[in-house]
Measured scan of single mutants.
Amino acid sequence: DAEELIELVERALKEGREIILLGVRITSEEAGKWFIEWIRRFL
């Protein structure tokens, strides 16, 4: 579910982890915020 995915992304970014989803590397909080917004819009 989308909320679970958002929580995972937020937690990983807070822990300083690198996330790779759909071939996109997300390493900064700014990118994470963009990704979370995208999830909310399309899922």
Rank of each mutant, 00 (worst) to 15 (best):
A31V: 15
E7W: 08
I20K: 02
I19D: 00
L8I: 07
L21P: 00
I39Y: 05
D1H: 14
R41A: 11
R25Q: 06
L8D: 01
E18P: 08
A12T: 05
R40S: 05
L8R: 09
V24P: 02
A12N: 03
E18V: 13
V24L: 05
I19M: 03
K14Q: 09
L5Q: 00
W34V: 04
W34G: 03
G32M: 14
R41Y: 13
L8Q: 08
G16K: 06
A31Q: 11
R25E: 04
W34I: 11
A31P: 02
V24I: 13
L5V: 04
R41I: 12
E18D: 06
E37M: 05
L5E: 02
F42E: 02
W38V: 03
S28D: 07
W34D: 06
E10M: 10
L13D: 02
E10N: 12
I6H: 04
L21D: 01
T27C: 15
A31N: 08
L43Q: 03
L13G: 03
S28V: 11
L21G: 01
L43N: 01
L5F: 10
E29N: 11
S28P: 08
F35V: 09
E29W: 12
F35K: 02
I36W: 12
K14L: 09
E3H: 13
R25D: 09
L8T: 04
L22G: 03
K33M: 08
L8G: 03
K33W: 10
L43M: 12
R25L: 13
T27L: 14
G32F: 15
E4R: 15
E15H: 06
R41S: 11
I26G: 01
A2W: 15
I26W: 04
E15L: 06
R41F: 14
L21H: 03
F35N: 00
F35L: 10
R40I: 13
F42D: 00
E10F: 06
V9E: 01
W34Y: 05
R41G: 09
R17Q: 03
L22T: 03
E7A: 13
L21Y: 06
T27Y: 11
R40K: 14
R41H: 13
E29S: 12
G23Q: 08
R25W: 12
E4Q: 13
E4K: 15
I26F: 08
R25S: 08
L43V: 06
A31E: 14
D1P: 13
E10K: 14
I39F: 05
L43E: 02
V9K: 00
A31F: 14
E37Y: 10
K33R: 13
W34N: 10
F35A: 01
L8A: 06
W38P: 00
L22D: 01
S28F: 11
A2E: 07
E7V: 11
D1I: 15
G32N: 05
R17W: 11
K33S: 05
I39A: 00
L5K: 01
I19G: 02
E29H: 10
R11K: 10
I36Q: 03
I19Y: 03
R41V: 10
K14T: 05
R40Y: 11
E30P: 08
L43C: 15
D1Y: 15
E4I: 14
L22W: 13
G32D: 03
L13F: 07
F35P: 00
G23C: 07
F42P: 00
I26C: 15
I39G: 00
R11L: 06
F35Q: 00
A12D: 02
E15A: 10
R41L: 12
E3F: 15
I19W: 08
E29M: 12
A12R: 03
I19F: 04
S28C: 07
E18M: 09
F35M: 05
E4M: 14
W38D: 00
L22K: 03
I39V: 08
I6A: 05
L22M: 08
E30I: 12
W34E: 06
I6V: 07
E4D: 10
D1M: 14
R40L: 13
G16H: 07
R17I: 14
E10P: 00
K33Y: 10
F35T: 01
E10V: 13
I36V: 06
K14W: 05
V9W: 02
S28M: 08
I36S: 02
R25Y: 10
R11S: 04
W38E: 01
A12M: 11
L22Q: 05
E37P: 00
E15G: 04
R11M: 04
G32T: 09
E7F: 09
K14H: 07
R41E: 10
E3N: 10
D1S: 13
E37G: 06
L43A: 05
E3G: 11
L43S: 02
R17M: 10
E15D: 10
V24Q: 03
E29K: 13
I36R: 03
E29I: 12
K33C: 12
T27H: 11
E15M: 05
V24H: 04
E29L: 13
R11Y: 01
K33D: 08
A2N: 06
A2L: 15
K14M: 06
V9S: 01
D1L: 15
A31G: 11
E10A: 08
V9N: 02
G16Q: 07
E18F: 12
L21T: 00
I20M: 03
I20N: 02
I39S: 00
R11N: 06
L43G: 01
I20T: 08
L13S: 02
G16Y: 12
E7S: 12
E7M: 11
E30V: 14
A12V: 11
E7K: 14
G16P: 03
R17G: 04
E29Q: 14
R40H: 08
E4G: 13
V24E: 01
E7H: 12
A12S: 05
V24S: 01
T27W: 14
L21V: 12
E30T: 06
L13Q: 02
W38Q: 02
L22A: 06
F42L: 11
K33T: 08
E4L: 15
L13E: 02
A2P: 08
I36K: 05
R40A: 06
V9I: 12
L5H: 01
T27G: 08
R40G: 04
E37W: 09
A12H: 06
K14Y: 02
K33G: 05
L5W: 11
I26T: 09
K14F: 02
K14D: 04
K33V: 04
E15C: 15
F35R: 01
A12G: 04
K14I: 08
R17V: 13
L21K: 03
T27V: 14
R40W: 12
L21A: 04
L13N: 01
E29A: 12
E30A: 14
L8H: 06
G23S: 07
E15W: 13
G16T: 07
I39Q: 00
K14S: 08
T27R: 08
V9R: 01
E4S: 13
E30N: 09
W34P: 00
E18W: 09
R17H: 08
E18S: 12
E3C: 15
E4A: 12
R11W: 08
G32E: 06
E15T: 07
E37S: 06
W38T: 02
L8V: 03
E3R: 15
L22C: 15
L21Q: 02
E10D: 07
L13A: 03
I36M: 04
I26K: 03
L5S: 00
W38G: 00
E37N: 07
E30F: 12
L22I: 10
E4V: 11
L8K: 09
E37L: 09
A2K: 08
I26S: 03
E10G: 02
R17D: 01
V24G: 05
W38L: 10
E37V: 07
I20V: 10
L43Y: 09
W34T: 07
E37Q: 07
R40Q: 07
I19N: 01
E30D: 10
D1V: 15
R25N: 08
W34C: 06
F35G: 00
R41Q: 11
F35H: 00
I36H: 05
G32I: 15
S28Y: 07
I6L: 11
I26A: 05
E18H: 11
I6K: 05
R40V: 10
E18I: 13
E10T: 14
F35S: 00
A2I: 15
V24N: 01
E30H: 08
L21W: 07
I20E: 04
R25V: 11
L22E: 01
F42S: 04
G23D: 07
K14N: 09
I6T: 05
F42V: 11
G32K: 10
E15R: 04
R40C: 13
W34K: 12
L43P: 00
K33F: 06
K33Q: 08
F35E: 01
I36T: 02
G23V: 14
E37F: 05
W38C: 10
A12C: 15
A12L: 13
K33I: 09
I36E: 05
R17E: 05
R25T: 09
L8S: 02
T27A: 13
L21I: 11
I36D: 06
F42I: 12
I19H: 01
I36A: 06
E30R: 10
L5N: 00
G32P: 08
I36G: 01
E10L: 14
I20L: 05
A31L: 15
R41W: 15
A2G: 07
E29Y: 11
